[in-house]
Nucleic acid binder design. Structure first.
Lengths: 241, 241
DNA sequence: GCAGCACTCACCATTTATGGGTATGTGGTA
DNA sequence: TACCACATACCCATAAATGGTGAGTGCTGC
């Protein structure tokens, strides 16, 4: 494990720049694992417009078993990704439920190290990814490693996610539609729990007019109904609930 | 303007660590402006549970005018924050609309530099902030500055946002409710545009049962109706649309 | 072991939303 | 200047959601 903070980010970025496909990225993770001198690195991406993307250096057996068992639904590491901003140590998570403890035990049997640090990364439209480093060492040494590498790990996670987005064409496909002010207003009031009558009253327009906005927004968002339209607008950040 | 990449992040973090209130943070921005040797720095935070938080080193006149005119609704810099992952140069934005061009002209009259770089930062629950540096110089010099400081600016933005979240107690106050798996499933299908009958069918449960989940989720989320519940869950990131 | 929570199923009357069609004036953009 | 997107307004038949009430099983943490 590296003892110094001075990991050459240039070397990292240069190596990352060589990647053009997901296979390249997978090779890159192996390289990164050696570069950081940790036992495993992992990258999980969750995006609404794409299938989940998982790239790990864990054994295929453990990965497959993890997915078959749908462990992501109980894994505190994954669950916390939705709530955290700062990178978090696996030891800081709540492993109280029986299912979580069982999974952890199986993971360690499957070759996963007991020390882990996960870096959440967020992009537009609810785009969420998790970059994880995993190792097997003493608590003290791990703590020192994490503290001294925090800056670098944040940047590594950011650039890795950026590269993945570029390869997967995340930015292009999203094409966040632009809603008119009135359409935003309409969806905002509906999202706040008002029904159409109340929303129309608060916007000082007729309910009929309000409906035009809703349907227009629904069309723009490609939503099948009002619920979906409001949900999409909310998750895209087009409206604030 | 600094010519080298070697800004001491330690100095930055040490200075930031001294901040305990929003006033401190405002002073910090002034310090940071001098530290980076740029004309202005700005921080805008948008969170659904909080009032928008704006801290800038622009003149109070321009800031007030900006808010009075609600320029954020037409400002391409702000609008792009919702769609971008990477830091973006103001020149890369679309200034085609008359309103945007007019605002830009007024901004420059108001003391804002013509060169700008904005760094979007995202936290949990749709939490979005924007860290901006602003200057008045040649395109070439600005480009070199931005390229050479990209790493540092990303980290500065991250830590600044982290500090702001800590001071504003973003993470604590939110108290994101925890939905049961079935409740999440129910809201997810509804958010995807299914009606209750379809959602129930896909979950292989009766429509009556589905309703129990919806109402339970609505109660947990404090939502007045289904639309609001789905919208809140979506904007909190509890479900993926 | 018990309390609590998650999950499952059922009915009925009332309120609300939806889909589809049609029309006009205004503002900005190409 | 021609066109397009936006904002405004209306009707009607059908489909869907809501509110209130009740009850049983199984797992889990204290």
């Amino acid at each position: 494990m590296l003892d110094t903070v001075q990991i050459k980010l240039e070397a990292y970025c240069d190596r990352l720049a060589l990647c053009e496909t997901l296979e390249d990225l997978h090779d890159f993770l192996d390289w990164l694992k050696a570069f950081l001198e940790v036992e495993h690195v992992a990258y999980h991406a969750i995006s609404r417009n794409k299938n989940p993307l998982i790239m790990v250096t864990y054994s295929p057996e453990w990965s497959d078993y993890y997915m078959d068992e749908e462990f992501h639904k109980i894994d505190p590491v994954v669950q916390n990704a939705f709530m955290r901003f700062q990178p978090y140590d696996w030891k800081s998570l709540s492993w109280t439920t029986k299912a979580a403890r069982g999974m952890l035990a199986e993971a360690i049997d499957g070759g996963v190290g007991d020390q882990g640090l996960s870096v959440p990364i967020r992009g537009p439209s609810g785009d969420l990814a998790l970059f994880t480093i995993n190792h097997r060492t003493s608590d003290l040494e791990w703590l020192r490693f994490c503290e001294s590498h925090m800056h670098v790990l944040l940047l590594i996670a950011h650039y890795l996610h950026q590269k993945t987005r570029a390869i997967e064409h995340y930015g292009e496909v999203q094409s966040t539609p632009s809603l008119s002010p009135r359409e935003r207003d309409a969806l905002t009031y509906l999202g706040a729990g008002r029904n159409r009558g109340q929303a129309a009253q608060q916007l000082a327009i007729s309910e009929h007019t309000l409906r035009v906005y809703i349907e227009s927004a629904r069309y723009k968002l490609g939503a099948a109904n009002t619920v979906s339209a409001v949900a999409r607008a909310a998750s895209m950040g087009l409206i604030q609930i």
